[in-house]
Structure formats: structure tokens, C-alpha cells
């Protein structure tokens, strides 16, 4: 069914051309930086304020409250409502206190771990950490996020830097496939800079004369790039690479599945395909071609796990790893994720 793939890719290409305004689209959602949920006093004040001052929007609450009108009529419902709101504030404050302690405990833990695990730009150290592990994931995926422009490691350059760090660690660990996901596709839009950034990072880890070769694949546009710009592989022998990196974005998730459905619907309308031809195997092989293979381990570097539209078909048995209240792409999260993966056992159904 190579016809399907062709069509989907063509459709995506067209979409890509027409979606230039997308690029201008302010990345509203990305910038809503997930604050690590640090519950300071002002936050509690904010939360409590919004609780007390905003009337309940939901129809259900209102109905419920109305239905609870007792002998005293409407006013008793109101009193009861205020009573619960006050109790809610008390609960929120208690929760905030507990959360505050938890947050600082977690941050301290992360700090110590970051000190304990430091790659210090040497692949040998990473190799040593990895050799202790029983098994390694064949395919690794990571979700990176763009931080606020003004923050340390923020903006697009921050994403590029985080991505190339991950590439360097993955190569050093000896994992051959890495998928990098970022919601808005900053990495794939800036692929040339990313290639430069990866190359630059690798020269820090390896001897400049012996930098590992890498290939960057962008499934959405069906393109493959080799090495840094200006060092493209010319013959087949130099196409042997140490790592294959796929760059994914929100479009490779749901939208690709929708595109695939649309293509199959068209093919069915033209009688080139039957409804009974649509099977689990067909969809799986198409999505593998269009997006890639299912990763074994997915690393997330935010404070609370949020899959952010990662391709849904590809997270069936994927192991997730994230560190609570962490908000940085660090080696300690990377290596601890690998450790967790080595310790877990997957048994489908049993």
C-alpha cells in the first residue's frame, strides 16, 4: 500500500505549503510555560482569590445548589455555598503547605541528583553508567519544550541546545534511534541550525577528527539530512551513521492519523480499496512508515507528565519517565530514565 503513503505525504506537503501562516501563529500554548507548580504565597492568594471571587460557571453546580434550597429558600443555599467555599479555601491552604514542602523536597533531591550524575562532556562516563544496566531501550523518545524567551535556556535556541544535549547522551549511551518531539515543531523548522548545534555539541564530547555521524529524519516532509550542513555524506559508505534522529511535532500525531483516514476514505470512494482492507496491521505499517516506530522509553522533562499530543498510536506500551517538579533537560533525568527502564518488565496482557 505504498500508494497510501504517497498520498498522505503529498497531502502533508500541500498542507505544509499552505500553512505558512502557521509559522507566524504565535505559539500561544507553548509560551504558557508550565511553571513547576511552585506554590508560593502569592499563588495561594491567587488561587484562593479566584475561588472566592469568581462565581461558579458550571450549570451543574448552580443546579445542585438550587436543588438544595431548604426551608429558608434561596438564602440558605447561598449560605451553604459560601460555607463550602470557605472550607475549600482552608483545604487549599492546607494543600499548598503540603505541596510547598513536597516541592522543596523534590527540588533538593533533583539538585543532589544533578550533582551526582554529571556527564562532564565525556562519553566514557556515560558509557560507564550505561554498562551497569541490564537492558537498554532500542528506541528512545523525548519531549522537549520551548521555555519563555527571557529565561535561562529559553526560546528556540534553548530547545536546540536541549535537543543536541540529548543527542550527545544518546550516542554515548549507544542507543541508535532517538525521536525528539516538540509541540510546535521548532526543531524541524530550524533543522539547519539544529544540525549545526548537534555537530558543535558532539565536537565537545568527541575528538574533532572523529565526530560520530548522524542522520536527521523529518517524517512529516519525508526528508533525511546527514551530518551538519556542508558535511553531507556523498557516497554510500559514509551514510553509515551512529544515530538516527527523528524530529516530530504535533502534526505527526493526531493529524497524521486524520490524514490517513481521509486518504483511505478517498481510496474507498474510488473503489481502489475495500473497507475490509483496513486492518490493524495496515494502519500500523502505514503509521510506522509515516511517523516511525513505537519508542520503548519516553522521557519528559517537565514537572508533571503531560504528553502534549505525542503520536497516540505510538505510546501503546511505551514506558514514561519524568521527575516530579523538575523543569530542566538534565543528564540525571536521562540516566535515571534508562535505569528505570532497565528495571521494568513488560508483559503484554499477562
Amino acid at each position: 500500500m505504498s500508494k497510501i503513503k504517497e498520498r498522505v505525504l503529498r497531502a502533508q506537503d500541500d498542507e505544509c505549503k499552505t500553512s505558512h501562516r502557521d509559522k507566524q501563529r504565535v505559539s500561544v500554548v507553548t509560551n504558557a510555560t508550565r511553571k513547576s507548580g511552585k506554590p508560593g504565597v502569592t499563588d495561594v492568594k491567587g488561587a484562593v482569590g479566584s475561588v472566592l471571587l469568581t462565581p461558579p460557571d458550571s450549570e451543574a453546580v448552580r443546579r445542585k445548589l438550587e436543588s438544595q434550597k431548604g426551608v429558608l429558600g434561596k438564602s440558605s443555599g447561598k449560605i451553604e455555598f459560601i460555607f463550602y467555599k470557605i472550607l475549600l479555601c482552608v483545604l487549599y491552604m492546607l494543600y499548598a503547605c503540603a505541596r510547598y514542602t513536597q516541592y522543596h523536597y523534590n527540588r533538593a533531591k533533583i539538585l543532589i541528583l544533578n550533582l551526582a550524575y554529571s556527564p562532564s562532556n565525556t562519553p566514557q562516563l556515560i558509557r560507564q553508567d550505561v554498562l551497569k544496566l541490564q537492558k537498554l531501550p532500542k528506541r528512545l523518545a523525548a519531549i522537549v519544550e520551548k521555555k519563555r524567551e527571557g529565561d535561562v535556556g529559553g526560546g528556540v535556541s534553548g530547545v536546540l541546545n536541549d535537543g543536541s544535549d540529548l543527542v550527545a547522551w544518546t550516542i554515548s549511551a549507544g542507543i541508535k534511534h532517538l525521536a525528539l518531539y516538540d509541540f510546535d515543531g521548532h526543531l524541524k523548522r530550524n533543522v539547519d541550525e539544529f544540525r549545526k548545534s548537534v555537530f558543535h555539541k558532539l565536537t565537545k564530547y568527541y575528538d574533532p577528527s572523529n565526530v560520530p555521524k548522524f542522520a536527521i529524519r523529518i517524517p512529516q516532509w519525508n526528508k533525511v539530512y546527514f551530518n551538519a550542513p556542508g558535511q553531507e555524506a556523498d557516497d554510500t559508505t559514509s551514510k553509515k551513521v551512529a544515530i538516527e534522529i527523528s524530529l516530530l511535532s504535533n502534526r505527526d500525531g493526531r493529524e497524521t492519523i486524520i490524514e490517513l483516514t481521509r486518504t483511505m476514505a478517498d481510496l474507498c470512494a474510488q473503489n481502489e480499496m475495500q473497507l475490509s482492507d483496513i486492518t490493524m496491521k495496515l494502519i500500523d505499517s502505514e503509521l510506522t512508515q509515516l511517523v516511525g516506530h513505537e519508542p520503548d522509553l519516553l522521557l519528559y522533562f517537565g514537572p508533571n507528565l503531560d504528553l502534549q499530543g505525542f503520536p497516540p498510536w505510538h505510546i501503546r506500551l511505551t514506558e514514561f519517565y519524568w521527575e516530579q517538579d523538575n523543569d530542566q533537560v538534565t543528564y540525571s533525568v536521562f540516566i535515571r530514565g534508562l535505569k528505570k527502564y532497565a528495571a521494568c518488565k513488560i508483559n503484554v496482557g499477562k
Binding site: 500554548v29 509541540f183 500525531g253 493526531r254 503531560d306 504528553l307 502534549q308 499530543g309 505525542f310 503520536p311 497516540p312 498510536w313 505510546i315 501503546r316 506500551l317 511505551t318 514506558e319 514514561f320 519517565y321 528505570k340 513488560i346
Partner: peptide, 16 residues
Amino acid sequence: TRLSDFLIWQVSRRDV
């Protein structure tokens, strides 16, 4: 920490 093939489409959304 796996979904084990449960609600994959619904849960992979942002802010779940």
C-alpha cells in the same frame, strides 16, 4: 508508568 494501550487517543492530548 505505561498506558498499556488504554485511551491512547484521548490521553495524549495536552493538559490531560
